[in-house]
Amino acid sequence: MQVGGKNDGGIVQLGRDVGRAGGGALIFSLPMLMTMEMWELGLYLDRMRLLVLVLVALPMLVLLSRRIGIESTRNWRDDVLDAALALGISAVVCLVVLALFGLIGPQEPVDVMIGKIAIQMVPASIGALLARSQFAGSSGEDDESPKEARETYGGELFLMGIGALFLGLNVAPTEEMVLISYQMSEWHALALLVLSIGLMHAFVFAVGFAGGSPTSPEEPWWSPFLRLTLPGYVIAMVMSLLLLWVFARLDGQEIDSIVMTAVVLAFPSALGAAAARLVL
């Protein structure tokens, strides 16, 4: 972290960064903090799956911090600290909010408390890191952002992954994901897949032309479609499958049901992936 190098304003700056991260964590995780399934999952979810979620999120947070973080970090050590700080702040925010809701308290076993906080901590920490891009822009203090100017292909796909993970996390724990897939026929799922990809491509085009995305108006439509939209959809599918597995929504299901449920969750995840450049 850069606090030491910021002389007399260091403490004030740290306070501002922590407050900003806490605000981001709260705004991004509030829908999940107020979702019943998330409390229940914290109770009974296999701890190994919870660990996988955190372990997958950790490098993503470090990479996200590399691009956009609580502070203007300049090396990997700072990024790791930045990600750890985001996780720590998120854990405190989740602890406070869940305690205020009466969902955790001293009567709860430690294992349950940790489970309830850990599952909420991941989406909250994405919010804590994104707080920089969401809140810093208006203050004018952090307008210089060297990483904003040009996005690499790998960076673009990574942002799509973060966008898919974030929006997917919002809905994956709900029972509605599997219930929707039960109501649909395979034709519905096929149509949803086409719609997801079509909307993704519209976003990729719109955002690509507006910002610094690696697309060009001179290119034929199929070039960004093949290079960005389809890989983006595959990323959304992979994130959807990961989240459904973590939240035990695939247990005891056959391949047909798994594909159907993944296509349903991939709809919001794909939109999250495609809109990532707008949000992040």
Partner: peptide
């Protein structure tokens, strides 16, 4: 990875972008 910026045309893209795109197309 690419850092071509906005002026690139479809033919100028690095091979890895087409490979990733091709594999994704097959999966979808």
């Amino acid at each position: 990875m690419s850092g071509d910026g906005n002026s690139s045309r479809a033919g100028d893209r690095p091979a890895v972008e087409w490979i990733v795109g091709g594999v994704s197309a097959v999966l979808v």
